[in-house]
Amino acid sequence: MSERDVSALLEVKDLETSFLINGKYYNAVDGVSLRVNRKQIVGIVGESGCGKSVMSLSIMNLLPKNISRIRRGEIVFEGKRIDHLGEEELNRIRGKEMAMIFQEPMTSLNPVFTIGSQIAEVFFTHTNLSKKEARQRSIELLRSVGIARPESVVNEYPHQLSGGMRQRVMIAMAIACRPKLLIADEPTTALDVTVQAQILELLKDIQATNEMAVMLITHDLGVVAEMCDEVIVMYAGKIVERADVHSLFYHPKHPYTKLLMESIPRMDREVETLSSIRGIVPSLAQMPRSGCRFAERCPKAMPECKIVTPKLTEHSPGHEVACLLYEESVPVHEVMK
């Protein structure tokens, strides 16, 4: 235990999560290792279907057990492995030590209960607050997430609130027990732009005041630039690049990252058409067995890209990339041949 780095809150090592499709397991997350330090905001970006959400659900152990499983790897939270814990032990961690916010604020609140009772439920699960105290705390929480009239909102039902307010309520529920890690799975995707900005601002504030780590999953690079300390770019279940936010935006290495950057709409440049990346993420069943998974769509693909699997290695301090364009990523034994 002592040799573990105390600053690491969450460590994922070589995680493989697979789904059962037609009687066979396919890896949706394939050998992902990452680490979230205390008080750090880590952004995870990538297209739809590249395994971001599956990875976050694996960490929380929320995937449906009958069609998916964690095949390999470790998830270590505060120096303790949590990937093989039973439901009961997990429930002691989930909601208390780590919490999650979901994409769809419209469906992530139970329509038949008042806001107050849903927040209070978190307290009843993890603390022994009385009903009155829980209510009081719920009102304070709602106020802290920027809801204007918390005293009446606690008695309202989800359908009476707007999307932005519901997302605030979700955040309030997630931070109720001051978790050390907050996983936000595309928290602003379903909201309009002005509300997005407010929610992000709120997340940042809360992160700073509660001193928690945030794992922010998004496909919006603008959000990443604004929020994160470190960025992980995922493609087809693998990490292709990892860097601090500054060097990723100024010196993107992987062709995929570069293309993602180019497809951000810009106000300051006049362009005819918005550039996009041709093709789509291969489906789980069609995933290439070896080689770089992006090779099919990569404008810089070389013949060996379809054969040699690149390795995620450090290119410059704190900047890791998995692409054969950089010789560090070429696996050693391949060079020997």
Binding site: N91, G95, S108, E121
Partner: peptide, 26 residues
């Protein structure tokens, strides 16, 4: 399939509680 069920599990509700408190009322 609704996300509030996932949300309920993610805040630490036991399966019994999820069924009794979240699914059955709905």
């Amino acid at each position: 399939e609704n996300e509030y069920i996932l949300a309920a599990i993610s805040v630490g509700c036991s399966p019994f509680k999820v069924i009794a408190k979240h699914l059955l009322p709905n």
